[in-house]
Amino acid sequence: MISRDYDDVPGTYVLDSRSYRKGYHLNMFCMSLNKAECREEFARDEMAYLQKFPMTDEQRQAVLDRDYIRLLQLGANVYYTFKIVSHDRQPPQVMYGKMSSPPMSFEEFQEMMINGGRPIDGNRSKKESGNG
């Protein structure tokens, strides 16, 4: 696989041709939740609805678990997983906090942002952050 210069940015998942192909059906499932009738069908039986999309079992399980960081690792993009957290009627900070390393609660994430956000210093490259 062709490497990209942004692969060096820590904790970051860029929607490129690699994730596009890996996450296509997962993301299209997320996209379907824009429609009220699809949201209702998903709410009635999540697994049955997920079966309608040719996703991997691992991707389906990560949706059921609301394991957001795993979803990104499996090819999802955050604008798409946004549809799941909206469906759950939760503020997006719940999802941002769950994806963070280490994970944070809604309140912890909110407080980090109110205190000026996650600092860029130490988070620019894997070398700098020491979690390559």
Binding site: P10, Y79, Y96, G97, R118, P119
Partner: peptide, 14 residues
């Protein structure tokens, strides 16, 4: 940045 372990990063200088 909304996605990933680095979610919440901002850069006022930039």
């Amino acid at each position: 940045q909304l996605g990933g372990e680095r979610a919440g990063v901002v850069n006022p200088d930039f």
